[in-house]
Design a protein around this nucleic acid. Structure first.
Lengths: 145, 145
DNA sequence: TTTTGTGCAAACGTTTTGCAATTAT
DNA sequence: ATAATTGCAAAACGTTTGCACAAAA
């Protein structure tokens, strides 16, 4: 969990203007661990700013991703792109039935990251460590969608 | 690198019919390590079957993914879904500039997988281990897209 | 022969874009 | 003041779907 100011400060340092909409997006991103999609953020922010557009959400997300402040997790089997404001190298775990994504901060990935870095000569910018399967609930409930 | 027969056999065992189009898709998947998208496979197969449709490619890919024979890597920053016929747990490395994806089979992930399995109680089905950054070429070339 | 798969085209949902009006600086 | 950002609408893109025809079993 990160503070919203770290995100807005990053935008400011990059020469971008701090608008109420962007503050709201940064606040939501920093406060959630639900790996939201653009549409989820949009729906949430519309309560406060009924006229905000999806384009603004995408615009801000792109900027934050470009600054390395937000990770793109990709689809969780639902065809939508999920975002994660926790950029520390950690394992994400997606349920292929209910499409929820949780974090597994207890699994240490730093050793893997340094290995990848050494072997590849890539200038690493981030990682998506996503395991997927059925969560305990979706295993027990007789889940035929 | 897997043999095409393993893929076609899996389709057959699942009760699906073996058509020339599906054989071609399985052959391409098994012969490449380029983590193709549906469109890439489509373009390639069209040389041999000019009338094949994208729908058939998606249909077959979905079946193979459903059977656990093919992994969905997700987007490499290009907005397209990349597929991988190598389902062993290994690190993938994507370049955020040229959008190529390579494998790093030397980095061992089996320990991480068992850790995830123990901690989470999920019925694991697979993993997408994707690091991203700039590949050596895209670092040196003065790359402003 | 029967049932599944194919190809086409149209539909879908997410994401992107163009532009005039607005707003942060 | 001025330059960036917004919101809207329309467009673009990848992917999915419906259906008549073709082909595998």
């Amino acid at each position: 969990m990160i503070s919203a100011e770290i995100l807005t400060d990053a935008l400011k340092k990059a020469g971008m203007r701090i608008t109420p909409q962007r503050i709201a997006i940064c606040r939501l991103l920093s406060q959630t661990d639900s790996h939201p999609t653009a549409a989820m953020l949009y729906d949430e922010i519309r309560r406060e700013y009924p006229t905000i557009s999806l384009a603004t959400v995408y615009n801000t997300l792109d900027a934050l991703v470009g600054l390395g402040m937000v990770n793109v997790l990709g689809s969780a089997g639902d065809g939508k792109v999920h975002f994660d404001a926790d950029i520390s190298p950690h394992v994400n775990l997606a349920c292929t039935h209910c499409h929820k994504i949780i974090d597994l901060p207890s699994v240490r990935m730093s050793r893997i990251e340094s290995e990848v870095s050494q072997i590849s000569n890539y200038a690493l910018q981030g990682a998506r460590i996503l395991y997927y399967g059925l969560c305990p609930q979706c295993q027990t409930i007789n889940n035929q969608k």
